[in-house]
Amino acid sequence: MGYLWSLLKPLFLFAILYIVFTYIIPLGKDVEHYSVYLLLGIVLWNFFTEATVIGASSVVARGDLIRKISIPRYLTVIASSLSALINLGLSLIVVFIFALLNGITPSFSWFLIIPLIAELYAFALGISFLLGAMYVKFRDITYIWEIVLQAGFYASAIIFPLSLVPAIYHKWFFMSPIVQIVQDARYAITGNDQPVLWSTVHSWAVVVPFLIVIATVIIGGVYFKRRSKYFAEDI
C-alpha cells in the first residue's frame, strides 16, 4: 500500500508536468524522448527530496528510542534513507518500462545508473546526517531546507531541458552534483544530445561536483558523530 502511493506521487507530478510542458509550453519539443527525460529527472529529484527531508527529522522522530537506549544513532538516518532508496528502486522500474514503451532499446549504458545512484545516495546521506544532527538543536532547519529544495528544483533543470539555458551558464549548473547526476543518468538511459558534465566542463573544475559530494559526506558524518553524544539530552 505504502509503495503504491510512493509510486503514484512522482507519476502524478510527471503527468501534470508532461501535459504542461508538452502541450501548453512545449519546452521539450526538441528533446528526444522528452517524456522519459522528464520522468527520470522527477524520480531522481523525488528521491533526493524524500531522503533529505525525512532524514532531517529522522533523529528527532526516533527521540523516544534515543532517550532510552544506546542504539547507534546513525541507524536512524540510515534507516530513513534506505526506505527512500527502496522507493527509488521501484520508481526506476516504472522508468525503465516507460523507456521501453517509448521505443528506447536497452543498452549496457543503462548500468551506468548504478554508480550514479550510489553517488546520489551518498550525497543525500551526507546532507541527512548534517541536517538530522542540526534539527535536534535547531527546529527551524527543515523550513530552511524546504526553501533550498524549492530553489534546487529549478536550479537542477529537472523540468526543462538544459539546452534552453544559454550555453555559457551550463558550467555553473554542472557545479551541482545533482545536475551532474541527473544529466548523466538521462544520457545513460535515453542517449539524447542534452549537455552532460563531460561535454561541458573541460578544465580541472570537472571534479568539483564529486568533491562537493565527498565533502558533504565527511562534514555531515563528522558533525553527526560529534553531536550524537548529546542527542539524548538535547531532544
Binding site: F138, D140, I144
Partner: peptide
C-alpha cells in the same frame, strides 16, 4: 531563553 531555532541562535 528558548533557543531551539536557527533564527534564535
Amino acid at each position: 531563553s528558548k533557543n531551539t531555532s536557527f533564527k534564535q541562535s
